[in-house]
Amino acid sequence: QSKDSFNVRMTNAYPPGSPFYVQGPGSPMDFCKKVEEMSGGRLNIQHFAAGELLPALEGFNAVSSGTIEMNAANAYFWAGKIPAAQFFTTVPFGLNTQGMNAWLYHGGGMELWHEIYEPHGLIAFPMGNTGVQMTGWFRKPVESVADLKGLKMRIPGLAGKVYSELGVTVRLLPGGEIFPALERGVIDAAEFVGPYQDRRLGLHKAAKYYYTTGWHEPTNVTELLINKDVWESLPKDLQMIVKMAAQASVTESLSWSEAVNSEALTDLVQNEGVIAQPLPQDIVTSLKEATFDTLSTMAAADPQTKKVYESFMAFKEKHASWAALSEKPFLNL
């Protein structure tokens, strides 16, 4: 091996075999392969799914301390350490995928991301996107805000907080227990990802009402986390290869998700008797109010979060007025 070649390790927050999150077009394993081929084998990344080297959510600390060089996950998993990290994955009622990419690549998002991770000895790039997700699976139809009261729902994170403002009982459950709990009615509703991933979990066997849209996750960015020292030790060309392979993965994973989700949704509705429909408007309105209360409280509590929140919201406002004249009329055609 020449002096110029590098062997690094990448851990992942998702278990082995997961499509999109681990393997398949635009996935982290695919990224590793791309980098190896683009660099002619000079940068070799060995990939480890969750549980192989590290438990699912330990990537941040391991990469920060330099034990592991790279990690694949979602930034909002680190919200317990850096509250502002939430904004680099998705924000309820926030930017959609086009807007998110615009903010990250050309609206100052990425600079903020790097600034916030700097003190932790980290640098991060977007490496994938699921596109918009779904509201989730409900055992009974929900028609008004009153139907949410006392509803037991599996929903982690910020969205859980918003739902609980509306009287939903939030239940935290590991992925594997979602199906049995929903099937038996221990929970009345569950959020996971989108049609393709949800079908793999079998959630349609447990509940028939599939609500849309993913107000809580209008986009979802996969995070490539790199130890800063390792990053700086890479020559410029390898750095560029990593950046470009990550950007290619964003496009590829997103387009793959769009393709398989449309197939899966059609199958669920036509062959599995799933009733897919939008959330009633008054529920959406109440959720929206609760979300902005929650977000502004969050921003007020932490100056760093406030800075990111303000950048995000200012960009969203600009982008929304453009989208209202471009995408929206087109979708209504």
Binding site: G17, G175, F179, P180, G202, K205, A206
Partner: peptide
């Protein structure tokens, strides 16, 4: 006998739903 951690893990690896394997 379901529920079982082995089956949950296998469902990810073989790409069948948890419910089917249970």
């Amino acid at each position: 006998i379901p529920p079982s951690l082995v089956l949950i893990l296998l469902s990810d690896i073989v790409g069948e739903s948890v419910g089917t394997l249970f």
